[in-house]
Design a protein around this nucleic acid. Structure first.
Lengths: 124, 124
DNA sequence: TTGATGCGTAGGCAGCTCCCTACGTATCAT
DNA sequence: ATGATACGTAGGGAGCTGCCTACGCATCAA
């Protein structure tokens, strides 16, 4: 599977607030079964199951059986793929902001020098 | 506008390979007009315009006029909102991996100690 | 074995996405 | 003013999303 399709799936999965909320629950409360996850949402349980399937297909969560329950947990790799995708943009902006702050520092320095000169010309 | 809607828009905008490719062009080649962006895609120019609108609505790009051209450029804030959303998960996994590597280190140390003991018992 | 529980899937419907072509509008060259 | 250029929007169609209820299957308690 091409990398672009993986990223497609991950971003698409995250483009829904219910699914992001499911991830947040798993993050804050740890692994848990569907029932417990579904309890927090004003939505039929099967709909939650479908959301979990989307997250699972995207690689953002995994499920294991425990008796008749299915325990879901966060998976790291898919998240990491987003971070990796984001990295070049972060670098770009880091450099951009660094350059900008260098300019501002230079302006501040020049202004301070100007201020010093003025102060020398207007003593007391 | 609630933060969740902003994030929704950004993730939805990024859940399309054409739009991600447009961002990549802007990243690598800098600000440019629609025409030049559209040239790289096997797609009608108006479709590219629509993708750019999605990116613009999500806050990922901005446009300024130059004569009859519209120059698009990357915008930082929307990207930053993703990074911020991602941060708690990154922290979670950093801790998780740190704990895991501590366990592995401990196992390695124990194993090494065992090895040392064996070596003492079998000198030369 | 029987009934209850936990979960997933089937089927259906309203609304959105992504592409297209046709057209409207602003700007520029002549 | 006239035609060309750069761009956006309108309108439409095929397919996907997100929700629902109904149902099927596996597991557990009694």
């Amino acid at each position: 599977m091409p990398m672009t399709d993986v990223i497609d799936g991950v971003f698409a999965a995250l483009a829904n607030s219910t699914r992001r909320a499911l991830l947040a629950r798993l993050l804050e409360e740890g692994d848990q079964p569907v029932q417990r996850l579904a309890a927090h949402f004003d939505m039929a349980r099967p709909s939650v199951s479908e959301h979990l399937k989307v997250l699972k297909d995207a690689g953002l969560v995994s499920g294991r059986r425990r008796g008749r329950q299915q325990i879901y947990r966060l998976e790291h790799e898919a998240m990491a793929s987003i971070r990796d995708w984001l990295a070049p943009y972060e670098l770009f902006w880091r450099d951009k902001l660094a350059a900008m702050s260098a300019v501002l520092d230079e302006e501040a320095r020049a202004e301070e020098e100007e201020q010093t000169r003025v102060e020398r010309e207007e003593p007391e």
